[in-house]
Amino acid sequence: MTIEGKVALITGGAQGIGLGIARRLAADGAAIALVDMKGEKLVAAAGQIEALGRPVTTFVADVSDRDQVYAAIDHAERELGGFDVMVNNAGIAQVNPILDVTPEEVDRIVRINIEGVLWGIQAAAKKFLARGQKGKIINAASIAGHEGFAMLGVYSATKFAVRALTQAAARELAASGINVNAYCPGVVGTDMWVEIDERFATLTGAAKGETYDKYVGGIALGRAETPDDVAALVSYLAGPDSDYMTGQAVLIDGGMVYR
């Protein structure tokens, strides 16, 4: 079963995992709203969706700003004629020993990774309720939301928080027919992991690429994850086959963390 004719909004949709999700949901038949802070990359990403023959619109927004998240959803509904799936994908990484983390670093990652998801859940649910319809809310967690990783302590804490928000929202919204789930990737070959690897190199003296290779070497399926791997799970969570599933944070990591 597909999501033909549905409208899906993806935050952080201009590149990486977000763009992979957008491409997959478009291929599944959805109209796509891409939200990101990077305007130029949004234009290029929209071109990829158009090439698939699906309607697409873009909106520049900072997900840590509640009003901008609400405005992005209003824009998607207005431009695409509906609103059915919210993918709270936007997020940032942070590599630093717990002893060295600064208040400014904590504030930034909390505003994006936690508050950005919170406002996305809130705004999407209110829109579904106003429209008198069911809906799907899908949040970006991580393997670091199931297990705390050294040098990624605050990042891990934000992803544990996403799991908590997912579970609480699922309980609160189930009676309204709104499903809330999360996806938990592992080591994905995107720009974010390039940044993580470079930061590890700076902090530990590891050679460039060494940390990335070490983590990939621990994947049971023997290769790094791709955005398309993540998008396949999100496609399931967005579609009708997952209608009896809510409150879950599903590991999709090739075999790194087992729960």
Rank of each mutant, 00 (worst) to 15 (best):
G135V: 06
M86V: 03
D67I: 03
L99T: 13
D65T: 07
E77M: 08
I143Q: 06
S142V: 10
I32W: 02
F160N: 10
T57K: 08
K127A: 12
K6F: 05
L221A: 04
A168Q: 14
D36Y: 08
A201L: 13
I17S: 06
T2Y: 00
V7Q: 02
I114S: 05
A33L: 11
K214C: 01
R171E: 07
Y70K: 14
G47Q: 13
A140I: 02
A71E: 00
N139H: 00
A93R: 10
S64D: 00
A174G: 14
E104N: 07
G53L: 05
A8C: 07
V110T: 09
D74I: 03
T226M: 13
A140W: 00
A125F: 11
A27G: 15
D229L: 08
N113D: 03
V87E: 02
I3T: 06
I178A: 09
D107H: 13
V69M: 03
K134R: 15
A182F: 04
H75S: 08
K136Y: 05
E105R: 12
A220F: 01
V194A: 08
F59L: 10
L221H: 04
R54N: 08
L42F: 04
F149T: 07
Q48A: 14
P240S: 01
V35M: 07
I73L: 14
R171C: 14
E210W: 02
L25Q: 03
D74N: 06
T102Q: 12
V43H: 10
A124C: 14
Q94R: 10
T158G: 08
V60K: 15
V56Q: 04
M86W: 06
L34C: 06
A182M: 02
A44D: 04
L165W: 06
G5V: 00
K159L: 12
K136R: 15
A26F: 01
V69Y: 00
D228I: 15
Q133G: 14
V250T: 04
Q15F: 05
G20F: 08
S142Y: 05
E195Y: 06
A161C: 10
L80Y: 02
G81D: 03
G217K: 15
A46C: 05
G239N: 08
R66S: 09
T166D: 03
W119P: 15
G53I: 10
G12S: 13
F83I: 09
Y215W: 11
I73G: 14
A231V: 10
V154M: 10
L118A: 10
A26R: 13
D228T: 15
T211V: 07
E195A: 12
R131L: 10
R78Y: 01
N113W: 04
D84N: 09
L251E: 06
E147I: 09
V216S: 02
K127C: 13
R108L: 03
K134H: 11
G81V: 09
